[in-house]
Design a protein around this nucleic acid. Structure first.
Lengths: 207, 207
DNA sequence: GCCAATTCTTGCGTGCGCGCAACTTTGCGT
DNA sequence: ACGCAAAGTTGCGCGCACGCAAGAATTGGC
């Protein structure tokens, strides 16, 4: 049952996300005060902070919205015959394949701002809760603590992949081109998740 | 070479930690302003924030100081014959065995304050960097990205264990006593790290 | 010993996060 | 249809994090 209350709430959340992204894109992220976002969404500054805990959250939320839910359903949609490791990896990587829309420009802006980068990598942790539930749903026999740990490990791996992906590539032009050719994000994600495969497989067998 | 500069820096850092802990213990964490800590340590409020990014950091740092370095040396001290998984787990668990000193009282205060709890669990992530270096030092053949991912996974598992350990055990008195008997922290840590053993062993073999 | 370069400290100003206490809106039972 | 309880919004105020630029201290070379 979808009451009026929840619909209004989701509407203002959406309005705040949209306003934050729009203002950040046209003025640059640094020239956007939280009052501006709130005003653009027709709500008070205080209410903004009831929805988002920091100024950057609304901006990145415009890009990462619903990712937690989508990763959960994606995992649930994998064929039950598939191994846990493959199912999890595919479900996660799927969430980070660029749709190529305006999200591309937004991501470009995010990578350009250190504060937004930090917030963006931080969102990787948000998938942990839903992912744990999805894992227990798929493998009912697995220990809840194990599910939580594996989800946290996956979240951490994703975070590492994101950090590596948008690493500053600072002034020292890297001792060798070997370190990482800044490959595509999906490839990087698979590489980062690979070390966890044995742990996921072991847990999947004990389901 | 230990210059005067670094010694002074470490001295003020230590003074800030000590002052923060002392004031928090005698007044309660809520009644300590950051100005008070700075004043007690004989520096300005601005300087405090040059050393610690938040008010809680100094307090928890008084308890967790040097943990990153200690976990690294602990891992290096394990016999080279031991498997990577056992070495890592023992090294990590060792850092969270209560020395029983005044740290006990401090931890009690931390567990009582939600803000401090959050900061404390957050410190688990700080071991990731040194842990990754220690892993590559022990297993030179392992891919740097793998080392980083495994360290992040270990940090995430520790975080989960800490959260579970000082979980609020809210008003709903738990449907069953089964969920967790709030066992000792070392046991909880081993349980949380157990799911990662296959991943660590696999990486250790590819060294 | 002295000087220039690096590094650290400090005050100030701005914006932000959030607790609190009114007030308004929504939900639901009768 | 009415009214009460639950949930949401808003203004206010406090403390905090941090950029910035000026001043003080430490360092290494001479």
């Amino acid at each position: 049952m979808t009451g009026l209350r929840e619909r209004k709430k989701e509407a203002t959340r959406q309005a705040l996300r949209a306003a934050a992204l729009r203002l950040a894109m046209e003025r640059g992220p640094e020239n956007v005060r939280v009052d501006d976002i709130a005003a653009a969404a027709g709500v008070s500054k205080r209410t903004y902070n009831n929805y988002f805990a920091s100024r950057e959250d609304a901006i990145v939320a415009a890009v990462t919205a619903e990712r937690e839910a989508r990763v959960a359903t994606a995992l649930a949609d994998r064929p039950a015959a598939a191994g846990l490791a493959d199912a999890v990896i595919d479900a996660v990587v799927e969430q980070y394949t660029d749709p190529g829309g305006q999200a591309r420009d937004a991501l470009l802006m995010i990578t350009a701002s250190p504060a937004l980068r930090a917030s963006y990598t931080g969102t990787a942790a948000m998938i942990e809760g839903p992912l744990a539930e999805a894992i227990t749903a798929r493998c009912p026999g697995v220990d809840p603590l194990t599910a939580r740990v594996l989800s946290a490990a996956v979240g951490a791996a994703v975070k590492v992949a994101l950090q590596q992906w948008l690493e500053p590539t600072g002034p020292p032009p890297s001792p060798a081109g070997l370190v990482v050719p800044a490959g595509s994000l999906p490839d990087l994600l698979r590489a980062a998740l690979a070390p966890l495969v044995p742990a996921l497989e072991a847990a999947g067998r004990h389901s």
